[in-house]
Design a protein around this nucleic acid. Structure first.
Lengths: 235, 235
DNA sequence: GTACGAGCGATTGCATCCAATCACAAGGAG
DNA sequence: CTCCTTGTGATTGGATGCAATCGCTCGTAC
């Protein structure tokens, strides 16, 4: 694996002799982005020793990292057995979307009043770039995430923000798969909704922004069932 | 500390020579209930060595337990410094309630269709016993929690249920304080709402049940600001 | 040929040990 | 008298090592 190899040297060099008090968090960060980037798809086995070697650390902080990721829903740990990149069933994924449907509008409403005009200009720019991304799925995923998270960035919230971040992350591996399956029409609608959100936010019409966002997420949820094969079998 | 002492012997005896693969979880369970019961109020320092000694374990599983509790929002860990029982500011607590307001109705709606008549009878019984609990705060807290969680118990959900459980837990130490400050009138309204929820569930009117529950939580949230002194100072 | 059980390797779980860091207190300079 | 500095004790962070557990293979009985 040449790719992970370069990553490992870079990271172990970075980690090697620092003692900032939380090596586990750094390891978790790295594993998290590996999962989010699709480098490690759901179901992949994660061995503690491997990670330890990759980071030049012992298995103790690795275990902490795995625990952290477990509570973030990105990793599944089975006692005395091992850890795997978490798999979601279709209904679990729909569940996450139903939750997001209800609380992301709340976060947007908390953030929007604190967004500056510059922030909103940046949102508009992102929305435009998403529209221009054509059928480049990776670009869409990256920009879409950036757009929504930027719209929430001004919220001064210690509970809701991190929670929603977590929900985004747990479904991230699957977004990649089902976004790729969208029709041009579905993408066009999503793009429209982005622009509508920007307009509502700029207008200060929080209720309207909330409603569009709710519909945006709901519509996405209803499209999930179109690609049931990407999910783990129901238990 | 005679009280924690008895607890310690009991627990260490229980834990002593089992190796079921997750001592950390067991330690976390115990610390969690100590926090939820009010035995360890917010702000209490938690020393790893103490816990390790109490459970006859080393500090390694204790650290895992603390991490777990940190991600549950019950404990705050500062690197190289220590762990404390988490403190909430008033606005953080309100945030949790705003979240619950939006997603607990969803959980109720997921659960209600699967509740048997016996389950609903039991809910009605709990609602009655809550009404009868007078001004016994501890009884109210226990029964109220039992009532709501029982109303959610039939939901077959791997994401939403645990999340709401977590939200309940993070605010538990404060519920104790502000419920004690409720007027008889406030309690009476809460009791009414419990009965209304039971009636709506029995009737199969999910939308109505959702609306009452939402109002139930919102009303509670708006009463929080009446006891700002029990919360940590805003940062 | 199939099903069951014992043995072995691989991997995790936990205890012990050492080093790094922080909080606090005492001392000295301004 | 106040503020900064320095050293010491207490506590956490992480590495190493050993024991328990699990999955797998191979052999054996039916």
């Amino acid at each position: 694996m040449p790719r992970t190899d370069t990553a490992s040297t870079e990271l172990s060099a970075d980690v090697a002799r620092t003692r900032d008090g939380d090596a586990g968090a750094r390891i978790a960060d790295s594993v998290r982005s590996a999962i989010l980037s699709g480098e490690q798809p759901p179901g992949t086995r994660i061995r503690q020793e491997d990670l330890a070697a990759r980071f030049g650390a012992s298995r103790v902080p690795v275990r902490e990292a795995l625990r952290q990721l477990e509570f973030e829903g990105l990793v599944t740990v089975r006692a005395n057995s091992g850890a795997w990149v978490a798999q979601l069933t279709l209904s679990e994924c729909e569940e996450v979307y139903r939750i997001r449907e209800r609380i992301e509008p709340l976060l947007l409403a908390s953030s929007a009043p604190h967004l500056t005009d510059d922030d909103i200009d940046r949102l508009a720019d992102l929305a435009a770039r998403i529209s221009d991304s054509g059928d480049d799925t990776e670009a869409f995923l990256r920009l879409d995430r950036e757009f929504h998270l930027a719209s929430y960035a001004a919220a001064r919230t210690r509970q809701l923000g991190p929670l929603i971040h977590k929900l985004w992350n747990t479904t991230a591996p699957y977004r990649r798969a089902y976004v790729a399956s969208w029709t041009p029409e579905a993408r066009r609608i999503a793009n429209e909704e982005h622009h509508l959100i920007v307009a509502a936010v700029r207008d200060g019409d929080l209720e309207h922004a909330e409603r569009i966002l709710e519909g945006h997420i709901r519509r996405t949820r209803r499209q999930l069932a179109r690609t049931p094969d990407i999910f783990a079998p129901e238990r």
